[in-house]
């Protein structure tokens, strides 16, 4: 009996030793050590610029800011996130060029443990900016555009980074299109929902907006910075139903502020996703 117990203990010890050795081997040889210190000097996001055309005075062109992230790293939608902040741009250019509102594509929902919901981008993010050329611009001029992109880039840790890109456009008498796809992409961007079917309801402590888009079977909602804080975007921000209900948490707003339902919508109609912008409030 004692011999059997001894044999069993020896076997268990051997098994434990084998497992410990294997764990140590795994930890030592894995490409990403669990306790690896972040390299704060590594550039994790890069950028490049591309203009749709060499424009004529008084015309408009589309500027694409292409941001590329290293694998496994993400950055943020410039709207409401549980954590992090959205990409911003510092633009320097000749005064004959004026820049419109950057257009960001719809992000992805990133749900992390602890009920943390962020709206993020991975891989390559293309932001489109409409640029107007003053009628005072002179053909033959070649104004330079510099854009510094500021992004919080996160994986296991978060690192604020900047990346700078420059390009120039040739002012011509007759515009020359180089990248038609940028013009097409901008012209098919999400448009504001016209006269949306929104029904507001209120209880003592909450306000809700119920949106119905004809033919819709699923909705995804990405609130902009202007939106009143949604109360439960984890449940309500991605809904398989013919209506979208968003409940708002007014505790972060000043009393008396209107409730604002604003941001990007992805709506599944039939088998196609369509994108819209929405900006509705309880008081006009």
């Amino acid at each position: 009996m004692q011999s059997a117990i001894h044999t069993m203990n020896t076997a268990l010890q051997a098994q434990t030793l084998t497992r410990t050795a294997a764990m140590l081997l795994c930890l030592l040889t894995s490409s990403k050590s669990v306790m690896a210190q972040p390299n704060f000097d590594q550039q994790l996001i890069t950028s490049s610029l591309r203009a749709s055309a060499d424009p004529a005075p008084g015309s408009e062109f589309i500027l694409a800011v292409d941001l590329s992230l290293e694998d496994h790293w993400h950055t943020y939608w410039p709207g409401i996130n549980d954590t992090g902040y959205g990409v911003t741009f510092d633009i320097s250019a000749d005064p004959t060029l004026s820049f419109g509102e950057p257009y960001f594509p719809a992000p992805k929902r990133y749900l992390a443990p602890g009920q943390i919901l962020d709206h993020t981008y991975e891989g390559t993010l293309r932001v489109l900016i409409p640029v107007s050329v003053s009628s005072e611009a002179q053909p033959g001029d070649r104004p330079t555009i510099e854009i510094v992109s500021n992004a919080l880039v996160c994986d296991d840790v978060c690192i604020p980074q900047t990346t700078t890109a420059t390009t120039s456009v040739l002012i011509t008498d007759y515009p020359v299109t180089h990248y038609q796809e940028l013009i097409d992409a901008y012209s098919t961007r999400a448009k504001r929902l016209v006269d949306p079917d929104v029904e507001w309801s209120a209880s003592d402590s909450t306000h809700s907006a119920m949106l119905r888009v004809k033919g819709a079977s699923r909705y995804q909602f990405f609130p902009s910075d202007a939106c009143t804080q949604p109360a439960d975007l984890i449940k309500q921000g991605d809904t398989r139903a013919d209506t979208l209900t968003i409940t708002f948490d007014q505790s972060y707003s000043d009393p008396g502020d209107p409730i604002r339902f604003a941001g990007r919508l992805r709506v599944l109609i039939g088998e196609e996703w369509q994108e819209y912008d929405i900006d509705e409030s309880t008081t006009p």
Binding site: D82, T83, G84, Y85, A112, P113, G114, I116, D118, C154, D156, V157, C158, Q229, S251, Y252
Partner: peptide, 13 residues
Amino acid sequence: PETKPYGCSVKYD
């Protein structure tokens, strides 16, 4: 008494 916190995500997982 209540404001909107900001920062990095707590890395629960």
